[in-house]
Structures are given as C-alpha cells and as structure tokens.
C-alpha cells in the first residue's frame, strides 16, 4: 500500500491480481448479480487510486479497509437503487427439458438465495463476511465498524430469520 500511495503501478497491479476476486465475491453476494458487483468493485478501485493516502496502515490491514470500502459502496447503491421491474416472462423456462429432481433443486436454490436476499442489508453483510468470506469475527466487525457483540447479534438474527423464512417456504412447497 505504501508503494501504491507513492504511485507505484506495479503495486497496484499486484493488489488487483491478489485481491480482486474476494472483493468481487462479496460484492456479488451483496448486489445479487455480477454485473452490478463489477461496477461496485471498479468504483472502489477508482477510490483506492484517488485516495490511497487515506488508508492508515497502523489502523488495520488493507483487505479489512478495502472490504469496508466495497461493502459500503454496495450498501449505498442498494439503498439508492429501487429494484427494477423484471421483464414479463423472465422466469418462464423450458421446463420440459428439466427433470423433476433438477426443478426441485433449482427451486430450493432460489428459495435459499431469496431468503438470503430478503435479509436486512447489515444481517446479509454479516453472514456474507463471516460465513462465505470466512473472515474472523474481529475482522468482520472491523469491516462493519461495529463491536463483536453487535456482529454476533446481527449474525444470530440473520440466521434465525433465514430459518423461519425457509421453514415457511418448505411448508408452502409441501
């Protein structure tokens, strides 16, 4: 990061190669699709280039700081953007080509993804960071700028909410 602040382009290239995937991953989970996630990550990298000097190496690791930049950008966008209407018939697929088993599997995946997407943003971010990105509780709390107790509270409520959503959907499906 020090090299990047000094304008070293090799340092920037190394950062992208090493870390772009993990930031794109968290952005995709938050945004719900890869196209929007790429936009968010790209904007975060532009911010990195224009304000790398704002990163305080003594205050924490680069990845923690940049997770915060990316996730804040995603949350801002989600709050700003109203969900666009889906085109008519977007969910009509050629169901004849699929077996019952694969249809059930697809429905299950959609139900789980839907339950995850319906969580409040902060709960979703907490689960994404701790469960999918496998950050330690300390790191995830730093990314979210909260203490560990608050993080655990978000995780617990998020998981409980998912459980109850999935239980309702399961009973509806059956």
């Amino acid at each position: 990061m020090a090299a990047l602040v000094d304008g070293d382009q090799t340092a920037y290239a190394a950062l992208v190669t090493r870390h772009a995937d993990r930031f794109l991953s968290v952005a995709t989970r938050l945004m719900g699709n890869q196209v929007n996630a790429e936009d968010m990550v790209q904007e975060a990298f532009i911010k990195l280039l224009t304000s790398a000097d704002k990163f305080n190496a003594e205050a924490g690791r680069f990845t923690t700081w940049f997770y915060r930049v990316v996730s804040n950008r995603c949350l801002d966008e989600l709050r700003r953007k109203r969900p666009a209407a889906l085109p008519e018939g977007y969910d009509k697929e050629d169901e004849k080509a699929q077996t019952d088993a694969s249809l059930l599997e697809r429905d299950k995946k959609n139900a789980i993804k839907g339950a995850l997407d319906r969580l409040p943003e902060r709960q979703k971010l907490a689960i994404t960071l701790c469960y999918y990105q496998e950050l330690s509780n300390k790191e995830a709390a730093e990314v979210m700028d909260i203490n560990i107790k608050a993080l655990e509270s978000l995780l617990t409520r998020g998981r409980q909410s998912m459980k109850s959503q999935l239980a309702t959907q399961k009973s509806e499906l059956l």
Binding site: L24, S25, T28, R29, Q34, K108, K109, L116
Partner: peptide, 10 residues
C-alpha cells in the same frame, strides 16, 4: 442450505 447457494463466478 447456505452451502447450496452457488459461489460467485471468479
């Protein structure tokens, strides 16, 4: 259930 959600494409 959480593991069923596919990982984002690299």
């Amino acid at each position: 259930s959480l593991d069923i959600v596919p990982a984002p494409t690299p």
